[in-house]
Write a protein that binds this DNA or RNA. Sequence first.
DNA 1: CTGAAAGCGCTAACAT
DNA 2: ATGTTAGCGCTTTCAG
Lengths: 352, 352
Amino acid sequence: MNWVTGLQPQPIRRPGRATIEDVAAAAGVSVATVSRAIRGLPNVANSTRERVQRVAAELSYRADPAASRLATGRSQAIGVAVPVLNGWYFSNVVAGVEAVCTEAGYDTVVLGISSAEQRTRLIHDTDGIHRRIDGLVFVDVSYSEDELTGLADRHLHVVTIGVRSSVFPSVGIDDVEVGRLATDHLIELGHRRIAVLTGLAEDPLTFPVPLRRLEGYGIAHRDAGLAVDPALEVVGNFSVAGGYEAVNELLALDDPPTAIFAMSDEMAFGAIQLARERRIDVPRDLSIVGVDDHELSVMVDLTTIHQDVEDHGARAARMLLDGLSIDRPAPTRLEDPVHLVVRGTTGPPRAT
Amino acid sequence: MNWVTGLQPQPIRRPGRATIEDVAAAAGVSVATVSRAIRGLPNVANSTRERVQRVAAELSYRADPAASRLATGRSQAIGVAVPVLNGWYFSNVVAGVEAVCTEAGYDTVVLGISSAEQRTRLIHDTDGIHRRIDGLVFVDVSYSEDELTGLADRHLHVVTIGVRSSVFPSVGIDDVEVGRLATDHLIELGHRRIAVLTGLAEDPLTFPVPLRRLEGYGIAHRDAGLAVDPALEVVGNFSVAGGYEAVNELLALDDPPTAIFAMSDEMAFGAIQLARERRIDVPRDLSIVGVDDHELSVMVDLTTIHQDVEDHGARAARMLLDGLSIDRPAPTRLEDPVHLVVRGTTGPPRAT
DNA sequence: CTGAAAGCGCTAACAT
DNA sequence: ATGTTAGCGCTTTCAG
């Protein structure tokens, strides 16, 4: 009730912000009808629908997202959780996700998961995340199956990129094959001491992709009757600087490698840089193969394994959006083929 | 009404989702007190606040963001609008923004503004954006002052990165100085025919940064008593491929340049690549200077102009968040100093 | 096909 | 210091 009769009877309201009631009034129908008409629900006479839509357009009416979220329980937004936002791989994934989401009328909220603490908060809902988004795509941020099951139980829709999951759909590549492909290439060229630049030195659980690639690396060795030397496995953190440092270490070895399998092009770039500074001839004295087919690899003539990362993001988003209507989508796996792109940084070792 | 008496009498409610009423009941207080206690508002006895917070924690209660958004009108989310999401510059900006926002408890929603249509939709509220976010940072997506004023009138808080604005705060660098610095460096080395790789060939309004840098390029020439040759201004679209193509064109000229000022490192990378393929000696036959100080520039030994992009994003976010409480923040300009980093891709021209 | 009304969960007066 | 209650703007039975 308004006690101060006649004084500012209407609440302070931003001008131009038409509500559903305004539209209803202007169209001479009830708010329920407006809601139906606008969202394309059935049981609305065509003439009515038309009129309502016209009026809504005139008033440039848009349903308040918060209000409809409150009423429906859906936020029309999805989240994309990535360890780091800059960095070639992740920004491409995000780009793919965003494109699809925007197209579908969903907002894309980015969630940086750089620390273990952020990772925990996210999964344990300390963060209240699943009130803010309808679904989540995890990009190479990995959780135990138990944790994921927990999410599923709370009705959060998830798609993972990179790591595969037994509880949620996922898209990625065959990382074992990646490791095998790269290593095989090197072995075929005649290399016997092949170093590998891997990811973070953390709990394997948090990032299994390097492990899979390492597995492929191992398989290639085994198949060729070669033994792997643990000393040749160095952490490069998937960064240029990390790759640089890693190779620096490797070259200090008594018996340094003749070839390097870098699990990302960025690490390979770092490796190349160090080689240049040290005046090491690539590929004569050191062969280098990367993974990603970064747009700059062609520039440095890097042999690498191609994958279409932006497409991974797009496909993941599509899967997620499609799955939103189903209560528990099957944990399908979408696996993109990968292939080796041979360029100039790999060749036979000098002393073959 | 539930017709099947006795069956599932309570509404379908996700388990574990405590509401403010649950907390109130459990703590033996009213919902208003819970609200106050949890948000740290005054007028709550310490003992009460403690108890409420404890109970809330036990029930792992979190205010439903949609509900509070509806009640308060604030969404606790900010948007960051970028032309493209992959690409070194933009992903770094977004990373900076996200870090600050997350820290402050705000969600970061990314908005790709690749098409003119998306640009229009966003600004004209066809998108309903300002119901979804409290503030917006525009990253090198430029609008007329009129359009921006329109946004301000609708109480949308904005900070721009790159382009400066007379209506909203902005952070960036002195782009005229960037152009001058790069060009001067080349002129001092003795170059007289200096090409410039610019941005999009679109409406200047949509992207003034290249224009400012071009201005600096012009000033440097004028100060040195040199004339600029329009034929040496080529569009490179700020991409590696664009830079490659642009230089390809330049070299076809009757009187090709001896030096190139690329407005981004990525274009410079493309230029370097082409030079390599053509066996053009850099810097002997072609000097190249970029802008950004991309982490890979050191790798290709690129002379460039350094700027801290991630920091731009962080500062913009901070300004935006700080300004949220003020009705119309002053259009301050935060300008980061830039400096030339001389590396190996620039040197005196052969025929000095 | 359309309307009335009861929420959705929270905040913010206003009372006490 | 705490409680009551009226919205916020929309969706969704349920009635008609």
